[in-house]
């Protein structure tokens, strides 16, 4: 007897994230959501739409515009035994609660000599592409990856959008989840029974022999498109989805680079001091003698994201820029 193929259902990234949130609240009575406009409004990006009716105002808690206040309250609630999932509307606003994230959430376990953990999950939208200009379009996940004491996730797929949350919520320490705004409308099919996924490992999204393309989040899909085009030109690129930016999965990165002997890093953050700089350094430290070409990066240009479409596009990593970078590294 053959096993039945798992049932596939059509969904979007937005619905997948919502499914993960609903599952978390159904399974874990201590879990609750809070954030700006997540209840009555349905979420700035409509992720939490309908959840207020299902779970009520205690567990889908609308907050005032007090990022530091409600993120800090989430930290306290976590220490009191709850499992808060806090939504910060975009990572651009998270600078208003950076004190709570860095000085409290990331630090309390250490300062207390291991007596108090802070099991909080903080979700935030990140990324550019909707002409929202400089105060709504930045990608700060690389910054957060600088901080010891937290874990930083960048789900790029439907499965990760849905499945990373449960694992994050069961992590005893603070986990930040960055959802790229350009992914919310992405459609596809997903296993109806899709559930929790690991939040430790990078994965190979496309195997290849000639060059390793290392990326995450919204840039994954541009990179996969570039890899498909390059294949037609005879360049066989491997695409790694980093998934977790802290801690980085060095083993998967180095295994790929040692095989292909070339690396291009694609990162929507600004180039200077970015997560791409960190990855490049690690490759130099750990796999330098395997390299046949300089490491190359495709990052956001060092400019606040401009409003006009043509300039916004020009500032961001694109399929064309990725292809050009790869051709240069491969020498074809």
């Amino acid at each position: 007897m053959s096993e039945r193929a798992p049932e596939q259902v059509a969904t979007t990234y937005r619905e997948a994230v919502r499914a993960g949130l609903r599952e978390a609240l159904q399974r874990e009575p201590r879990a609750f959501l809070m954030g700006e406009d997540i209840g009555r409004y349905g979420g700035c990006y409509a992720v939490t739409k309908g959840m207020l009716d299902e779970f009520g105002p205690e567990r889908i808690r609308d907050t005032p515009l007090s990022e530091s206040g409600f993120v800090g309250a989430g930290i306290g609630a976590a220490m009191a035994g709850m499992r808060p999932i806090v939504e910060v509307m975009t990572c651009n606003f998270s600078l208003l609660c950076l004190d709570q994230i860095l000085n409290n959430a990331a630090t309390i376990r250490h300062m207390s000599g291991g007596q108090f953990s802070v099991p909080i999950v903080i979700r935030m939208a990140t990324g550019a592409g909707r002409q929202l200009a400089a105060q709504h379009s930045h990608s700060l996940e690389g910054w957060y990856a600088h901080i010891p004491g937290i874990r930083v996730l960048a789900p790029a797929t439907l499965e990760d959008g849905r499945g990373m949350l449960w694992t994050a919520m069961n992590d005893p320490d603070p986990v930040l989840i960055f959802e790229n705004i350009m992914l919310y409308n992405m459609g596809g099919t997903i296993d109806a029974a899709a559930g929790a996924v690991d939040i430790d490992r990078a994965v190979v999204r496309r195997p290849g022999r000639d060059v390793s393309l290392l990326t995450y989040g919204g840039s994954l899909w541009k990179t996969l498109e570039a890899a498909a085009t390059l294949k037609e030109q005879g360049i066989d690129a491997e695409v790694i989805d980093l998934r977790t930016l802290r801690p980085l999965d060095d083993a998967t990165i180095m295994e790929s680079v040692r095989k292909t002997r070339r690396a291009v890093i694609v990162d929507e953050g600004w180039r200077s001091g970015s997560i791409s700089a960190e990855i490049a350094t690690r490759i130099v430290e750990q796999a330098f003698w395997s390299l046949d070409a300089p490491i190359t990066r495709v990052c956001t240009e060092e400019v606040p994201i401009p409003y006009p479409k043509h300039l916004e596009d020009a500032a961001l990593p694109s399929r064309e820029k990725i292809e050009a970078a790869v051709r240069k590294v491969v020498g074809r």
Binding site: G76, A77, A78, A80, G81, M82, Q100
Partner: peptide, 23 residues
């Protein structure tokens, strides 16, 4: 729960501790 050396930084977690107990 500390010993918080960021002026004002202890207030939001205190609200959360209270909220958590209440919930």
């Amino acid at each position: 729960f500390g010993g918080n050396a960021i002026v004002g930084g202890g207030l939001p977690p205190a609200v959360g501790l209270g909220l958590g107990y209440k919930m």
